[in-house]
Nucleic acid binder design. Structure first.
Length: 705
RNA sequence: GGGCGCGUAGCUCAGCGGUAGAGCACUGCCUUCACACGGCAGGGGUCACAGGUUCAAACCCUGUCGCGCCCACCA
């Protein structure tokens, strides 16, 4: 048999055909939701941070979403994949500052706020372009016509409205209390941005002389530098060693201040010395003790400046020292006075900023808080009632546990990059919250107003992503049609940061949870199971893999390895194997073409031949298995079903049997068989398209001559 | 201190009540007219361990060991 001249090559060039087909799809509007009579299907992308480029975890996240979107689009649904990027407050500000430093340019403070923000916007454009280019390379069929950014004008309107409404409802308020303060970044951060590290430290036992001179009081601490701010000493009310001292006072060495001895059940008698120094301005527990004893006259002394150097509230010879220097000096000074009792090794948890990597300081400041407890209740109920389901369901426990114990959410940040808080202050300190400066001014005519300089936590705005991207607060057609969305696909690591916040804000502002399903996938690790990180140098660039094996191969691999949210150990050999699968499929097309018949949308003739009857049953079973896999979010099952069908049944058996059939039968029977096979091939391509869209499109179009 | 997940072929993992599966790797043969990124044939597992439930357990229950993760205010 001689092969026709149009015969396609044995292998194919993914890069060439991928670019060609993606442009074709995008320009022909294939990704637009434009089926008004069809049932909508909606996914909102977890907006990538504009901090650089996408990593392999994004490739996984977006591959899964694209499979769902393309699958449902092929099912006839009016599929919309809402796309965009996140301004990512702290993270982006840090990236830009680092770049300025690397380029030897003036720092943020020297530049001033306006100029610095211009620089960040320039960076945002660059990073945003990189990200959207990467998504296109992956084949993501996003609705680019409605691309959003968490700091675009519409978003700003939504954020402002949410802030003002929560404030008016009493669910958002300004308060002076202890926050997690990051001394390096000079901002408050939320509980979630603190990571505790196990540190081998020390427990220092110091002696505080009793006021009446009758002896000493042993106090144990892991943070000697905060002694300068002690306002009391607390003991357990039932501790027989100390009951007689309750109500007396002791003298705080170094600062020579008399402080009360109080009783509080928070103190464990059998830990440390059984007596706890109370430093209300520098310890969360101590601050609670202080509030429980309003009549004890406990002073609240802020010992530190925002950069964690010792403030003017300290004795003169401590001022300006770093907290580490102050610690050493306190210990030395106590020792010199003969008041250092003993030092014990002590392993304990120390809070670090997850971005800055420095020790977090509990710090007394004015910040804005959201009453998360109140917002959490409907968010809990939505999952308890099954309105929103987690897949795998085990994450529901995690979600419940966190929301059941949720603390007020500090949403203000002392940064420049972000949504500036819509609050204004009069010269005498009164606060006016309004949707605009004009509105605020109208509430205080003739008074000079100063706007709050702080910005909001980046998650405050990303919590609005499911509905603000569709036009909220306007009641747009997009909003009523595509909200709530169907499924959220994201990593389990941001259930607290993002998923829970979207549930809270979404339900509060729209009365509906933002999606019926939350699919949580795992982390992509390297082949050895190590977490990927830039510092370890084991990261994999998705574009490198796409260049090497093609986007289809990478997509198929990620889907095949995605099993019920477990972490993925990504081995390049696996990608190679699925690249071979694409080639196998490609060569099946070659075989079809070499038999001289092509055509799209061929309906197989009635199956009379036993082999045809067999394969058509296999096709039906495969379609059913694929539907079941998608309904259960079993991406591994989806990929494996296709792999087995195409390779083991369609190629190894069916096409092989057809060869002899074609050779032996008369011309008419042979043609009928080939037509039948091609009809099946057509169906096979449809089944495969959601997971490997590029090669299936190329084959589809090529054999349709 | 709580909670969760995992331990199945050399490797990576499915299976979660009815006589052990996939991919890769491995062995042998085949450069056969779709594909050597291929074809055919094949080897390989006391399903971590110990009890229990059951006619029947990798799969359910209890406990043990080993890994990993999350949450938590013992100074």
């Amino acid at each position: 048999m001689t092969l026709p001249e149009t015969l396609i090559d044995k292998t194919f060039d993914p890069s060439e055909l991928e670019a060609r087909w993606y442009a074709h799809w995008e320009h022909s509007g294939a990704f637009r939701p434009e089926r008004p009579d069809a049932k909508p299907y909606t996914i909102i992308i977890p907006p990538p941070n504009v901090t650089g480029s996408l990593h392999i975890g994004h490739a996984l996240d977006n591959t899964l979403q694209d499979i769902l979107i393309r699958y449902h689009r092929l099912q006839g649904r009016d599929a919309r994949w809402v796309v965009g990027t996140d301004h990512a407050g702290i993270a982006t500000q840090m990236v830009v500052e680092r770049r300025l430093a690397e380029q030897g340019q003036p720092g943020r403070k020297t530049m001033g706020r306006a100029r610095f923000l211009e620089t960040v916007w320039e960076w945002k454009a660059e990073s945003g372009d990189t990200i959207t280019r990467q998504l296109r390379r992956l084949g993501a069929s996003c609705d680019w016509a409605n691309e959003r950014f968490t700091m675009d004008d519409g978003f700003n309107t939504a954020v402002t409205k949410v802030f003002v409404q929560l404030y008016n409802e009493g669910l958002l308020y300004r308060d002076k209390r202890l926050v997690n303060w990051d001394p390096k970044l000079g901002t408050a951060i939320s509980d979630l941005e603190v990571e505790y590290r196990e540190i081998d430290g020390h427990m220092w036992h110091f002696r505080y002389p009793l006021e009446d001179g009758s002896g000493y009081f042993a106090v144990a601490t892991t943070r000697p530098e905060t002694i300068l701010g002690d306002g009391a000493v607390a003991v357990n009310p039932d501790d027989p060693r100390y009951t007689h001292l309750i109500g007396q006072r002791c003298r705080l060495p170094l600062v020579d201040r008399l402080i009360p001895i109080i009783a509080d059940a928070y103190v464990e008698a059998d830990f440390g010395s059984g007596a706890v120094k109370i430093t209300a301005a520098h310890d969360f527990n101590d601050f609670e003790v202080y509030k429980r004893h309003p009549d004890a006259g406990i002073p609240v002394i802020n010992l530190m400046n925002p950069d964690a150097t010792m403030s003017d509230a300290c004795p003169p010879d401590y001022r300006g020292l770093t907290r580490e220097e102050a610690r050493r000096k306190v210990i030395a000074d106590f020792d010199a006075l003969g008041l250092l009792d003993k030092i014990e090794p002590h392993r304990h948890q120390v809070p670090y900023g997850d971005r800055s990597g420095v020790v977090i300081e509990p710090y007394l400041t004015d910040q804005w808080y959201v009453d998360a407890h109140t917002l959490a209740q409907p968010a809990l109920e939505a999952v308890r009632s099954g309105q929103t389901k987690f897949v795998p369901a085990t994450w529901e426990k995690t979600y419940f546990n966190w929301l059941d114990n949720i603390q007020p959410w500090c949403v203000s940040r002392q940064l420049w990059w972000g949504h500036q808080i819509p609050a204004w202050y009069t010269p005498d300190g009164a606060c006016i919250v309004a949707e605009s400066e004009a509105e605020a001014q109208a509430k205080a005519p003739g008074v000079a107003l100063r706007r709050d300089e702080d910005v909001l936590d980046t998650w405050f705005s990303s919590a609005l992503w499911p509905f603000a991207t569709l036009g909220w607060p306007e009641n747009t057609p997009e909003l009523s049609r595509h909200y709530p969305g169907d499924v959220l696909v994201t990593g389990f690591d941001i259930i607290f940061f993002w998923v829970a916040r979207m549930m809270m804000q979404g339900i509060h502002f729209t009365k509906q949870p933002p999606f019926h399903t939350v699919y949580c996938h795992g982390l992509v690790r390297d082949a050895k199971g190590q977490k990927m990180s830039k510092s370890k140098g084991n990261t994999v660039d998705p574009l490198t893999l796409i260049d090497k094996y093609g986007a289809d191969a990478l997509r198929f691999t990620l889907s095949a390895m995605e099993s019920q949210g477990r972490d993925i150990k990504l081995d390049e050999k696996r990608i190679e194997g699925y690249r071979n699968f694409a080639t196998k499929l490609w060569n099946a097309a070659r075989f079809a073409q070499s038999n001289g018949i092509g055509g799209q949308g061929i309906t197989p003739p009635a199956a009379t031949h036993p082999v045809n009857r067999w394969i058509i049953g296999e096709v039906a079973a495969t379609v059913a298995a694929l539907d079941a896999a998608m309904a259960a979010y079993r991406f591994d099952g989806f990929a494996d079903t296709l792999y087995q069908f195409v390779w083991s049944r369609f190629c190894d058996w069916y096409l092989e049997l057809m060869k002899s059939e074609i050779a032996l039968a008369d011309e008419e029977t042979g043609r009928r068989s080939v037509r039948f096979a091609l009809g099946l091939y057509d169906q096979t391509l449809r089944m495969l398209h959601p997971i490997i869209p590029f090669v299936t499109e190329e084959i589809w179009q090529t054999i349709s001559v």
